[in-house]
Nucleic acid binder design. Structure first.
Lengths: 147, 147
DNA sequence: GTAAATTATGGGTAGATGTGGGTAAAAGTG
DNA sequence: CACTTTTACCCACATCTACCCATAATTTAC
């Protein structure tokens, strides 16, 4: 399970080191490299290969005959790529992914249960403020959900 | 079950020792480390892992394809982190959590049934005064609660 | 009431981790 | 093929963290 958040820096060569804990979790269940792809909202998703395979099996059931399905398939798969680590535990973030999530130097790496998300720091700050407000309102009105 | 309150000090290295009773209770039902996360109001929540897993199973049913679900997932997981004890029975409180709850040197550690809460001492004093004043009114409005 | 044990608090230090950069091999380009 | 650009691997170093020990304060045992 992925949790927590860390602020790391992307260096001048577009490398980003991933916290050790998360690195280990990314490789649990096999030695195959994780997958990085575009995320919903302005962020990137990072999955263990095992999870990615599950996902793409689920996607199998999407009807290619439906336009929406084709769109989602193209979005997620065309932008996905294998994501090996260098010997220092860093990944190399491709240019088109940097652009998509508008990552600058400071990147927030957050664990979200079965995936990792990469956010530009300032983007995450506004986003998490917004979330905090929404969740507090929402949680007052939702039964069976308590923290 | 967690009860009572203690006043402890956070040291210069952001370590906070947890009362032994509570420490034992935090590890009941397994040897996995507890989870610390942001709480409602200006405080932090500390859960036994077992309890935390219940939450995350509830969250399991959330569909990542829905925006509200993504928000809740992010809120729950990004703010949480594993919380191991050092050999002296202290936890290390991350900077962002200190900021969130505005903890200074004196911290009040209170037991609240299935969780522990960490409050800044002065914040807790005002809060508990407020609670004392309003508890009579509040209890009128809550069903399924009798003492 | 006193001694012994437990608990809270402070700090030193070796090793782990995050960050930056050099360089040679590999890949792309004309 | 010669040249430029990219990539993979190496080392360097500053910072952080986990673990250790020390001591003060408190509780428990007798």
């Amino acid at each position: 399970m992925f949790m927590g958040h860390h602020i790391h820096k992307i260096d001048a060569r577009d490398r980003l080191s991933i916290p050790v804990r998360m690195r280990e979790e990314l490789y649990r269940g096999g030695r195959e490299h994780p997958i990085i792809t575009v995320g919903f909202e302005k962020c990137l998703f990072l999955y263990p290969m095992e999870r990615w395979k599950n996902f793409s099996e689920e996607a199998e059931s999407l009807k290619t005959s439906r336009e929406d399905s084709r769109k989602i398939e193209r979005f997620l798969f065309a932008n996905a790529s294998e994501c090996p680590f260098d010997s220092q535990g860093r990944i190399l973030v491709a240019k088109h992914l940097l652009d998509y999530a508008q990552l600058n130097k400071d990147v927030v790496i957050i664990g979200v249960r079965n995936r990792i998300e990469l956010w530009d720091k300032s983007e995450w700050e506004t986003q998490s403020m917004l979330i905090r407000k929404t969740v507090l309102d929402v949680s007052e009105n939702i039964d069976g959900f308590s923290i």
